[in-house]
């Protein structure tokens, strides 16, 4: 069995994010980069499935930096692919998915592909659905866990309807919500081992892909500024605010 986890290198949004004066992007000086948090949950589930089935686990990223792939190898992935692309952070989800799909066609087939439900940099939920369509895979999104019951892959998801337990036949792509278990951290031994694990660097030319942008980010604007808040002295005052200022009662 072969499993693939797709991960993305994103700015650490817990840090202070500044928009450039001209709105052309975010200020990259002193920016920290991390693995997209939902991809970390996807990776954790992939590791658990690998352990349960003795499967092989590969990871894939389009990036200009190997750091997040080395991390994934350090926590237990067996092999990594990096499609080297300097402007990876400007790729729209349509083209990013085309690249992933091509790698999967050339390096697969995979029984299970896992990735985060959303990438927090561009706030896109599109990767899973695109790959399901491009590759004709079975598909379920927003899962919180996945495990084998015998040979059946059973996933749980939480939706507006409630908690759902589904089974999905393979090959399938699953996108991960915040998981039921926290992603593991690399230990020293893992980090040492990761240095000897294979990490193949691919180029767009080798994949035979040319990019025609599917969208263009015209500008970034800051969220509407909040005016200075007001501390109220009593609950009576709050009721007055609800009545006269917010006007909901």
């Amino acid at each position: 069995m072969k499993i693939l986890t797709i991960i993305k290198r994103v700015p650490d949004t817990a840090a202070n994010i500044k928009i450039l004066e001209d709105g052309s992007g975010i200020d990259k000086t002193n920016l920290n980069y991390v693995t997209n948090p939902y991809d970390e949950y996807a990776l954790e589930t992939a590791l658990r499935l690998k352990e349960a089935k003795g499967a092989e686990l590969e990871v894939l990223a389009v990036s200009d930096n190997q750091d997040i792939l080395r991390n994934a190898l350090a926590v237990g992935a067996d092999k990594a692919y990096m499609v080297e692309y300097a402007d990876y952070d400007k790729l729209d989800p349509y083209n990013l998915s085309r690249i992933y799909a091509e790698v999967i066609k050339q390096k697969g087939p995979y029984d299970i592909i896992l990735t985060g439900k959303v990438t927090i940099d561009d706030n896109s939920y599109a990767i899973g659905g695109y790959l399901a369509a491009f590759l004709g895979l079975n598909y379920v999104s927003h899962i919180v866990s996945a495990q084998f019951e015998g040979d059946e892959l059973v996933v749980e998801k939480e939706t507006d309807r409630g908690s759902e337990t589904l089974s999905i036949s393979l090959p399938a792509i699953l996108t991960h919500e915040r998981g039921k278990y926290e992603p593991r951290l690399p230990n020293l031994r893992g980090i040492m081992q990761a240095k000897r694990k294979p990490l193949d660097v691919l180029k767009l030319e080798d994949l035979g892909i040319t990019i025609t942008p599917a969208y263009e980010i015209i500008k970034l604007t800051p969220p509407p500024k909040k005016e200075g808040g007001r501390i109220l002295e009593s609950v009576d005052e709050l009721v007055e605010v609800l009545k006269n200022e917010i006007k909901v009662i």
């Binding site: 939920y125 599109a126 899973g128 659905g129 491009f134 598909y139």
Partner: peptide, 24 residues
């Protein structure tokens, strides 16, 4: 609408009809 169901279906439709998908 960009609900769980909507965000699941939107990009799948987009992939099938060769569209760009934007959510949220």
């Amino acid at each position: 609408s960009s609900t769980v169901v909507g965000r699941e279906i939107a990009p799948l439709v987009a992939g099938l009809v060769d569209a760009i998908s934007v959510e949220e």
